[in-house]
Each structure stands twice: as structure tokens, then as C-alpha cells.
């Protein structure tokens, strides 16, 4: 309803840290001048492993609407298998960006009018020294590359701060490596 708001939907599984990732992007956006930032998790009865969604809205002006995002400008998917379980693509705006953590090549994801950014973050995170499955810091690097909304340097600082007791350097490295290796596909194949 408001043109000035960037709507970002974060899809993950319970325990994957999608909320923490969205919070880091919220903090970084706020530091870089987006004074209107709200992050609203959608809570169900889900537990570990079940699909979860959190809404991140950013703007230069105060945001008054805390309802869940229905038509995202950007959707971030922490586990590519979620694309088979819930309808993530259908609600996307024309020209939206879809960021996916996937081992598959980016050409496998081709949707009309959607820019797709992919990286194998599960593998990159291991390379960065993180335990298997810790992908929420890496996905922020892919988000930064695909959206150009926030700089990787600023975000690395916020990641180190947010993960100061849980492998800050490895998490920052995972974000940086993912940033460098994210492939953006401007596919226009039919859905």
C-alpha cells in the first residue's frame, strides 16, 4: 500500500535462525539510514524443522502496518526444499528478487519476471568453519549481493556483534564468501 516500503519475506525452518538473519538486516538497514524498520515474525505452533516466515519491512519513514507481508519485493529462502512445501513464488511482486540457499545451479530456478540469486550456503558455511546447517549468516551475504540494499562491510560488523558469543569470525566469513559466490540469474522462462 505504501510505495516507500521494501517488503522482505524470510522463509526458513524452525531452528535455522531466519529471525536472527532478518534482525541483522534490520539493524544494518537502520544504521544506514532506513529509520523505519520493523521485523515481525509470524508465529504458529511450529517447532524445529517446520516452515517459518518472518516479515521485514524497511523504509526511510516510520512504518505503522505490522501485518504479515503478502506481496514481497524480496523473498529469502534458507532451505531450497521449502519451495516444494509452501507457496513462496506466487505472491512475489513482478520484478521481485528470490534469494535461495541451494546446492542446485541457479538455472534450475527460472520464474517469469523474478530475479533469482542462489548460493550453496550449506557448503560455504562448512568451508567458513561453521557447523553443518548454520546458514543464517551466509544467507545475509547472498541477500546483500542480490539486493544491493546494504554493504557487505557494514553487515559483517553487525554479524560479528550479533554472533559475538557464537563464532563471530566464522559467521562473518560465511557471509563474505557467500556474497562473493552468489549467482544472480535474470531468467525469464515461464513459471
Amino acid at each position: 500500500m505504501r510505495e516507500d516500503i521494501i517488503n522482505i519475506a524470510w522463509h526458513g525452518r524452525g531452528g535455522q535462525g531466519a529471525i536472527t538473519a532478518a534482525k541483522i538486516v534490520a539493524k544494518t538497514s537502520f544504521q544506514t539510514g532506513y529509520t523505519g524498520v520493523v521485523m515481525v515474525p509470524t508465529f504458529g505452533t511450529e517447532r524445529r524443522g517446520a516452515p517459518v516466515m518472518t516479515s521485514l519491512k524497511i523504509s526511510k519513514k516510520k512504518i505503522y502496518d505490522l501485518s504479515p507481508i503478502e506481496n514481497p519485493d524480496i523473498a529469502v529462502v534458507l532451505d531450497h526444499l521449502l519451495l516444494n512445501e509452501i507457496n513462496i513464488v506466487e505472491g512475489l511482486k513482478h520484478g521481485a528478487i528470490l534469494v535461495i540457499n541451494t546446492p542446485k545451479p541457479s538455472n534450475d530456478y527460472s520464474y517469469n519476471g523474478i530475479r533469482v540469486a542462489t548460493a550453496d550456503i550449506t557448503a560455504i558455511a562448512r568451508e567458513a568453519g561453521l557447523p553443518y546447517g548454520m546458514v543464517n549468516s551466509g544467507i545475509i551475504g547472498a541477500f546483500a549481493k542480490a539486493s544491493s540494499l546494504i554493504g557487505i562491510e557494514t553487515i559483517s560488523d553487525v554479524i560479528r556483534e550479533e554472533f559475538k558469543e557464537i563464532r563471530p569470525e566464522e559467521n562473518a566469513r560465511s557471509a563474505l564468501l557467500t556474497y562473493e559466490r552468489t549467482i544472480i540469474n535474470y531468467g525469464d522462462k515461464k513459471m
Binding site: K23, A26, F30, T35, V37, V38, M39, V40, P41, F43, I63, L66
Partner: peptide, 10 residues
């Protein structure tokens, strides 16, 4: 609850 208690904003 949730809408304000669990949302994050500056």
C-alpha cells in the same frame, strides 16, 4: 502479544 511483544523495531 506477538505483534508488539515479539516484533523488532527501533
Amino acid at each position: 502479544g506477538y505483534i508488539l511483544s515479539h516484533s523488532h523495531m527501533p
